[in-house]
């Protein structure tokens, strides 16, 4: 029977050090003591893994079957235009978006967003085959997809890595909305007229600026936050 010299508690014979303060157990009278059976087993247990692929298989097969059957219909029956490309592209886009939900839930959120962006770009590329003029794809479609993807990644980084609360998240979302509107107007102006001139997005940016200043002020003043909570609670 040994006691911890620091804590004064009696220690079970199987313990080599006090679990409370990590002081080694040395009993001068029992230096060559017999190892006592521990009250706890030494084997660690593992959790049984569960197959959660059923929904993934179901989604893949439904989307795959839809895409293939539309492709066959387009090739053999309604052969006028390559209309099945829209369905095949939509199925592919949906499948990519469903990956983190039903197929591989451990996929990084950044990779998911990137794949979603790539899939949307690909879908627009497929759609461009159905239009006579394809300049909209590289002039407007792909730049908007890139802009939205970059902003979504940026927002995710802010929410996950910067201090996170309801107010800070609102700050990030409002700021990203402002940037999105600004980017959209710039891209549309560049594509339509070639001249870049801010108009409606300047109004949005002003509102976003006011809201951001308001949020930053509330965030930096505890008293204001508490006052807001008191008055707005439901």
């Amino acid at each position: 029977m040994s006691y911890c010299v620091n804590c004064g508690v009696e220690l079970d014979g199987a313990l080599t050090e006090c679990p409370l303060c990590n002081t080694p157990v040395i009993n001068p009278r029992e230096l060559s003591r017999q190892k006592k059976q521990s009250p706890y087993p030494e084997e660690k247990g593992t959790v049984e893994s569960v197959r959660r692929k059923d929904l993934g298989i179901l989604t893949t097969s439904i989307l795959g079957a839809t895409a293939v059957s539309c492709g066959i219909l387009n090739l053999l029956v309604f052969t006028g235009a390559p209309w099945s490309l829209t369905v095949i592209g939509a199925c592919l886009l949906l499948w990519v978006m469903m990956i983190p939900l039903v197929i591989y839930s451990r996929q990084s959120v950044y990779l998911s967003l990137l794949l979603d962006g790539v899939a949307t770009g690909l879908y627009l590329f497929i759609l461009s085959f159905l239009t006579a003029d394809r300049s909209w794809l590289w002039g407007l479609g792909i730049p908007i997809v890139i802009l939205v993807t970059v902003l979504a990644e940026l927002l995710t980084i802010c929410i996950r890595h910067l201090p996170s609360s309801f107010l800070t998240n609102a700050l990030y979302v409002v700021s990203v909305i402002g940037l999105l509107c600004l980017g959209l107007e710039l891209l549309i102006d560049r594509y339509v007229s070639g001249n870049i001139a801010l108009s409606w997005s300047a109004v949005v940016l002003t509102v976003v600026g006011v809201v951001d200043v308001l949020l930053i002020t509330v965030l930096s003043r505890r008293r204001l936050r508490n006052e807001g909570r008191r008055r707005l609670h439901f």
Partner: peptide
């Protein structure tokens, strides 16, 4: 222990 209670400790934290 300070209140005079004899405590015996068992744990899975440190064992041979």
């Amino acid at each position: 222990v300070r209140d005079g209670i004899h405590v015996k400790i068992e744990s899975n934290r440190s064992q041979e």
